[in-house]
Amino acid sequence: MNLTLHIWRQKNASSPGKMVRYEVKDVNPEMSVLEMLDVLNEELTLKGEDPVTFEHDCREGICGCCGFMINGVAHGPQAATTTCQLTMRHFKDGDELFLEPWRAKAFPIVKDLMVDRSALDRIIAAGGYVSAPTGSPQDANAILIAKENADLAMDAAACIGCGACVAACPNAAAALFTGAKISHLGLLPQGQPERVERALNMVAQLTVEGFGSCTNIGECEAVCPKQIHIEVISRMNADFRAASRKSRKEPYQDPSEFRRWSFGLKS
């Protein structure tokens, strides 16, 4: 099949970008979208043009590297699928595809379809962990966890941190991502001691990073490749509400100072 692509091209964070049109011929329906771009890039390279930059690594839907908007939908038209696993079977001859990077203030563009998602790492650094120094734990089976809770925690923990939720949200909120980690740890006994601090710190970091607010409309869960449910957002809200009430600590000083660790992209 032959397709027309419109791809966002932008040299780096500070230069302006624009949509550029490309024709691709003889696309095999078994290819993934990324493989189609590989083929385009081989052609561009041989023509002496700059190949399209896009983030990718495992190409089996788990590393969370890949992802861009395909015709206005994060990761494209098939539900529960990352871009790397989306095959060209979902398109037909003559289709026009608009490929755009995730858009959010918190995700500055690095180049073309590649964005900087280090904000998500800093949200985890703010409290998305259990403090269990190496060597300290008790026997694994000493902690009993109801199967249902373990399963729910696993549902939330399945998040791959791709950022599609942010990209799809009209407010560029990272509520699904943050809610998933707060739920994962909050549902387990191991996560209880730090539950209050975790909610306060992670939610504060959301604001520092410049994400928008959740309006509970559900665009995020519709594009989530791991089908994480917005129930996790409600758990985050509940934890934040409870934490705001319970915490005896005075709010701390600007946490951004701690979490501005460099990604080589920021001055």
């Binding site: 419109h6 966002w8 949509m19 908007m69 015709n71 206005g72 939908v73 608009f98 755009e100 858009r103 959010a104 203030k105 918190a106 799809a168 009209p170 407010n171 560029a172 909120a173 410049g210 994400f211 928008g212 607010s213 309006t215 509970n216 409309i217 559900g218 665009e219 995020c220 869960e221 519709a222 594009v223």
Partner: peptide, 30 residues
């Protein structure tokens, strides 16, 4: 305040194409 954050700040550059696939009309028009 949330309107200012969501519509003016959180996404400074919008999409050329954006489809809504998970939300209701009512929720988008609050």
């Amino acid at each position: 305040q949330l309107l200012l954050l969501n519509k003016m700040e959180a996404r400074p550059v919008g999409y050329v194409k954006k489809k809504n696939i998970g939300s209701s009309y009512a929720s988008r028009t609050m």
